[in-house]
Simulated assay, not measured.
Amino acid sequence: MADHGYSLILEHPADGVALLRFADAGRANQLCWAAVDEMADLLAQCLESGVRVVVLASDLEGHWLEHAWLTDLDHGLGGEPTTSSGSGWYRVMRELSQAPLVSIAAISGDTCGGGCEIGWACDLRIAETQARFAQPEIRLGIPPGVGGVSRLSSLVGRSLASEMVLGGRWTSAQRLFEAGALNRLVDRGAALPAAIEWASELAQLPAAALAACKQGLAAAPELPLSEALTNEQSIFQLTASDTQSRAQIQAQQRFYDAGGTTAECFDDSN
């Protein structure tokens, strides 16, 4: 594989958890097409190896994933040589949508354009307070192309999405947290450890149920309520009849029969 000046490192910090760390100091974490293609390959590898939760992180101070490297974009549009095919943009989004794999974006710095769009495609997002977000495509004379309109709108609503997409300016992590685009807002340096801790907790949950919940969450916004409810019930019936799920149900009832309570079982402090 050619050396394009970036690093993508795949680690396994806990059982069922993968950590994918990216850095490209020469491009300030702008994503060349080779990097995105390799990211897609590594996400597919996570799925194939049975990883339950993947964390996407940056090794470059001040930056998470930034926009596409414009040289690749320009050359691709002009039929000139690029670092890779560029199909990785669509493959990354596809792999992140797969039900068996839950994804957490550990956002430790600025992110914009295609980097933001990868973040919007993740299931969960933790951001540090100093991080900034932008969909700056309009300032390049183009619109967003892989979720900067559709996914962002579904996360924050049309008003804020319109402001970001039509203006192309930076938006603070605090504002996006308040709008619902971020699940957690943490201090500088805390995004990655918080994401790994959360991923480790999720990876210990019943695998079939975790995948089923993601499947239902993904389908619900696309369907009328009646169809979404029917789909949810179908997913429930299929999952609940699984031998492992029934064993979990029976174990939980034994806990209650022995005097246990829901407060004890589901308390975050336990």
Rank of each mutant, 00 (worst) to 15 (best):
G88R: 03
W89P: 12
W89S: 14
Y90G: 10
R91A: 10
M93L: 06
R94S: 15
L96P: 03
Q98D: 15
A99D: 09
A99E: 00
A99P: 05
P100G: 04
P100Y: 07
P100R: 02
P100A: 02
L101S: 03
L101A: 05
L101K: 04
L101W: 04
V102W: 12
S103A: 05
A105Y: 11
A105M: 01
A106C: 04
A106P: 12
S108H: 10
G109Q: 00
D110E: 14
D110N: 14
D110Q: 10
T111G: 03
C112Q: 06
C112P: 11
C112I: 12
C112E: 11
G113L: 10
G114R: 09
G115N: 05
C116P: 13
C116G: 13
E117A: 07
E117I: 05
E117N: 06
I118T: 03
W120K: 12
C122Q: 04
D123P: 13
L124G: 13
R125F: 06
I126L: 04
T129K: 07
R132I: 07
A134G: 11
A134F: 12
Q135G: 09
P136A: 07
E137T: 01
E137C: 03
R139S: 04
R139P: 00
R139F: 04
P143K: 12
P143I: 08
